[in-house]
Design a binder for these strands. Structure first.
Lengths: 182, 182
DNA sequence: TGCAATCGATTAATATATTAAACACTTTAA
DNA sequence: TTAAAGTGTTTAATATATTAATCGATTGCA
């Protein structure tokens, strides 16, 4: 799924209807450099790539965005949900391959003592959920709360976050995030 | 709005709980280079940045995503969910004002006999949910299924759809859609 | 037939990214 | 105290990105 910078640049440049020289002039770099980048004969510095993309124009984020694909299946029996990650946390994802989709919904079960980890990773998007059974300790960017049945959360996924079941019964949660995070 | 690569890298590295040397080893580059990047004393090639981000790990796309929102309310007790009631169906929305947000998560309860109507809702976006209790009849674009606890659905919201509780006990569902539909 | 103006690709020269090694500082343990 | 291992930073040497100039091929116009 690793797309290469060269083909991607050529693609967006041509989509914008610009020649290498036209783009080079708008971006304040040389046409030769654009040629080399598009052939992947050099890996531009992000400073240079920024200048080039500004000439198109397209944002870094959009330039590096993943690509899309359609989908069909609608209904999923509980044993058809795709299990994503094993260990002491069960992630049952609604739908199979979500690449190209914007929404990810999961039915998660946290065994007592389970923990998403201390590393507090962050990713783009928004994230929310409702507790169905048991209790879950949720930490977001320094704030912490223990949530029970019916309680809920909603936050920007870029804020570092962590989930732990500190109780002694399993915790069931239905969560949603956009776009899918894994 | 121009965020700089150095501070962003430092921020995500620290969020992942890694030292410059630890990250350098995982990424296959030198710690000195990471130091220089974080100080913006050099602009890495995208090839190098890719290696570094893979060590965290975080995608290019996420790395270049626009910056955080100011802190907002994260946790919601069940009596704090905002009720959007529609007749015999109870919609408890996670979060207050969702304007400008991309994700809407709701804890819904369908009383026996309740029905979103045969006019078949249709709107832009994607929609998914997991049944928590009871049974729900879901119709999407001609396809119909009766779903029970743990079952789920996922579809493009532009396909006409309808929800009915044809059973004799209340049905609880956690649903998500993007973007928010009301 | 030209000549002029494009196009993208290539090359030697040069600017800069990257490395390897050392620096100064803090923490931990004996 | 002492040593050892951790942190981030700095520097000279080297690898590579980038430039400026040129190339051959194509297109349009006289």
């Amino acid at each position: 799924m690793e797309f290469d910078v060269g083909s991607r640049l050529r693609s967006v440049r041509e989509a914008a209807g610009l020649s290498q020289r036209q783009l080079a002039k708008r971006a304040g770099v040389t046409n030769g450099m654009i040629s080399l980048i598009e052939q992947n004969r050099t890996s531009p510095s992000v400073a240079s790539l920024r200048k080039v993309l500004k000439g198109i124009p397209i944002s870094m984020s959009d330039f590096f965005a993943e690509n899309f694909r359609p989908k069909e299946k609608v209904f999923f029996r509980r044993d058809e949900l795709t299990e994503l990650s094993r260990g002491s946390i069960s992630f049952l994802q609604v739908g199979g391959d979500l690449s190209g989709r914007k929404l990810q919904v999961m039915h998660e079960t946290y065994k007592p003592g389970s923990d998403t980890g201390r590393s507090m990773l962050s990713h783009e998007g928004e994230e929310a959920g409702v507790i169905v059974n048991g209790h879950l300790e949720v930490t977001v960017d320094g704030e912490r709360a223990v949530l029970g049945p019916g309680d809920a959360f909603y936050f920007d996924s870029r804020r570092p976050h962590r989930f732990r079941n500190t109780g002694n019964v399993p915790c069931e949660v239905v969560t949603a995030c956009t776009p899918p995070s894994f």
